[in-house]
């Protein structure tokens, strides 16, 4: 099948989506977004760009499906185990000094990172005084996050990640296996709040000691990256921490001067002013 649309058609479609639904994808990185739109077009077997565009504009149910498919929802538990080892060793001891801990996972997709952090907090004896906020643009993935049910096929990899991150328990003690699914313990999800939040258009909604936003900024153009970093800056307490993906950086950003990287390798910054 042939792809018969390019940058101009995509720009028009993004403007129409913004007008009709209020979702602003115009400052998303074009290379990645184009690839996702091409993928969706082929997956749903459209014959022409006109059909594709009309369906998105006139069918809100299809639009919801489109948002889910064009946003990247790939995530895993304890991804980059050495990152989590650094969180255990350098961040959690600082969090322990607070009477109440608030953490924001921005763009959390199906929530695997939120569960990862809850496990770390539980092992440090801090989960009971913590609240983890998971937000995403996409309500469908948040429903999965709330349930805390993940494919059992992933557990071997997650268990390896867990041990590499410095975990000393049996990872399987955190979930109940049922056929091909693993349901994570409710003692973890009880300390979580999931809600939709659009980093492009919504502002700060609380103050936090730690914000995770890993592998989300790579999908945004520079100006939007800067805007989102300002939202994080406004949402972070003094001496709070901002954790980004392994290929993302505060370097060259307008807020860089107020932050100090806490580890030479891992992408975690501390707010100093």
């Amino acid at each position: 099948m042939e792809i018969n649309f390019g940058d101009k058609e995509i720009d028009n479609l993004l403007n129409d989506i913004l007008d009709i639904y209020g979702y602003d994808f115009t400052e998303y990185s074009k290379a990645s977004l184009t690839r996702r739109l091409h993928r969706l077009y082929l997956m749903d077997k459209f014959k022409s760009f006109g059909d594709f565009s009309a369906r998105i504009q006139t069918d809100p149910v299809y639009f919801k499906h489109a948002v889910q498919e064009i946003s990247v929802n790939v995530t895993e538990m304890l991804r980059d185990p050495y990152f989590y080892k650094t969180v255990r060793e350098k961040i959690i001891p600082v969090l322990a000094t607070y009477p109440f801990i608030r953490i924001w996972h921005a763009g959390c997709a199906t929530g695997e990172e939120v569960y990862s952090m809850a496990i770390l907090l539980k092992e440090a004896g801090l989960l009971q005084k913590s609240l983890l906020y998971g937000t995403d643009i996409n309500p469908v993935v948040l429903e999965k996050a709330r349930k805390g049910i993940f494919p059992i096929s992933q557990m071997q990899q997650y268990s390896t990640n867990y041990l590499t991150s410095g975990g000393t328990n049996d990872f399987s003690s955190y979930y109940t296996a049922n056929y091909n699914l693993a349901k994570f313990d409710e003692s973890l999800s009880r300390r979580m709040v999931f809600s939709t939040h659009n980093l492009v258009s919504d502002s700060s909604f609380n103050s936090f000691q730690l914000i995770f936003c890993r592998n989300v900024l790579i999908y945004f153009e520079k100006d939007l990256q800067a805007k989102v970093l300002r939202v994080f800056d406004n949402s972070l307490e003094l001496f709070g921490f901002l954790a980004l993906g392994s290929k993302e950086s505060l370097r060259f950003s307008s807020i860089a001067g107020s932050y100090k990287q806490v580890d030479p390798k891992e992408k975690i910054w501390k707010k100093l002013k």
């Binding site: 990185s29 074009k30 990645s32 690839r35 990247v72 790939v74 790579i218 999908y219």
Partner: peptide, 21 residues
């Protein structure tokens, strides 16, 4: 190309990274 990321190229000849399937 870095491990565990897809690499894409924008029209302005800059690199973009992507952590999709």
């Amino acid at each position: 190309c870095p491990a565990d990321y897809h690499v894409l190229i924008e029209k302005d000849k800059t690199f973009a990274l992507d952590y999709s399937e």
